[in-house]
């Protein structure tokens, strides 16, 4: 993704589509009006670190570098019900508060092992489970549908030009 566009879409939020001509609903990123984002810059940073903990940088880029947190915020802001949005915002707060309480520092300042362990406590927590599953699912979706992954790792073909209906399964 172009960095300029990535930064621009960070700033987009609920109701961003309202400024378009009627026939252009929902597609032209560059003409979308910028409105108040769902998350504060600090929360956005926290979300980036959570996504990175779920899909970290290895020998290939992780979620943060691929801007998956931007995608997550956009999806929650535009495609989710208010109730889910509340779960999302509250979950971020809870996670940060838990980090401060148990580690005495913010989630972003914690090391990889601490982050993993914090997220794992969410996974089993009755109240935070919904938040964890939402963020994890969106992280996976954003990662697998990112330009980097689709073009470099999973072999997406926009226009294959053929269909073969019966080929041997490749042994992996």
């Amino acid at each position: 993704m172009k960095r300029r566009n990535a930064l621009k879409s960070v700033a987009l939020g609920v109701g961003a589509l309202a400024g378009l001509p009627a026939w252009a609903n929902g597609w032209n990123r560059d003409t979308v009006r910028q409105t108040t984002p769902l998350l504060s810059p600090r929360q956005d940073q926290l979300l980036a670190e959570i996504a990175e903990a779920i899909i970290p940088t290895t020998d290939t880029p992780g979620a943060k570098e691929l801007g998956v947190h931007t995608f997550i915020q956009k999806m929650v802001a535009d495609c989710y019900e208010p109730k889910a949005q509340a779960t999302f915002s509250k979950g971020l707060e809870t996670l940060e508060a838990t980090a401060q309480r148990t580690l005495g520092k913010s989630f972003a300042a914690a090391d990889a092992a601490q982050r993993t362990s914090l997220l794992k406590t969410l996974e089993t927590d009755a109240e935070a489970k919904g938040f964890f599953q939402m963020v994890k699912n969106l992280t996976i979706r954003g990662y697998l549908t990112s330009e980097y992954v689709m073009t470099n790792l999973t072999g997406f073909q926009m226009a294959p030009g053929y269909y073969k209906g019966c080929v041997p399964v490749k042994k992996s």
Binding site: M1, S9, L12, V14, G15, L17, A18, G26, W27, R29, F71, K74, M75, D78, C79, Y80, E81, R141, G142, T145, S146, E147, M150
Partner: peptide
């Protein structure tokens, strides 16, 4: 990946 909602319809 160029669709910001990955082709999902916004709630609005």
């Amino acid at each position: 990946w160029e669709f910001e909602h990955r082709n999902q319809l916004p709630l609005e």
